[in-house]
């Protein structure tokens, strides 16, 4: 359950960015190689938000695919987890360029605050 501490980091950043405003939504990007379970992230969010400015906010999760760059044919490609073959030249030693992220992308707050 390391999702609890990671969600705590995201919430701390979100609340700081809201600068006193109540949070209505958080947009979080989760890479499939981040090692994070999305259901656990949602669970942590529900457990941590009551009593904070993020209480009742919506958690929008955007899942990415692993992004590779092929050193042989210079193709950039995304793949499902567990199949890392370059679609152009079939090499399997692509360099990982994305898919490990767990980022707070943006927040929504009421416009009038």
């Amino acid at each position: 359950m390391h999702e609890l501490s990671l969600m705590n980091n995201l919430l701390t950043d979100a609340i700081a960015a809201a600068n006193g405003a109540p949070l209505r939504a958080l947009k979080v990007r989760v890479g499939p190689l981040s090692g994070v379970v999305i259901e656990s992230l949602q669970f942590a969010f529900d457990a941590l938000t009551p009593g904070t400015p993020a209480e009742g906010a919506r958690l929008d999760i955007e899942e990415t695919a692993p992004l590779f760059h092929c050193p042989h044919c210079q193709t950039s490609y995304t793949t499902p987890v567990g199949n890392y073959q370059c679609p152009a030249c079939l090499a399997t030693d692509g360099e990982l360029r994305g898919g490990c992220e767990l980022d707070l992308i943006s927040i929504e707050v009421p416009d009038h605050v």
Binding site: A18, R24, L59, I61, I105, S106
Partner: peptide, 29 residues
């Protein structure tokens, strides 16, 4: 992209039409 909505009731329900402002954060957990 999918949306895990807020599956719980909240005391201070906000109107869906409430004007919103998006703030870019871009910080890694």
């Amino acid at each position: 992209s999918h949306n895990h909505g807020d599956g719980h009731d909240h005391a201070h329900a906000h109107a869906p039409s409430e004007p919103m402002r998006t703030i870019d954060v871009r910080k890694s957990a």
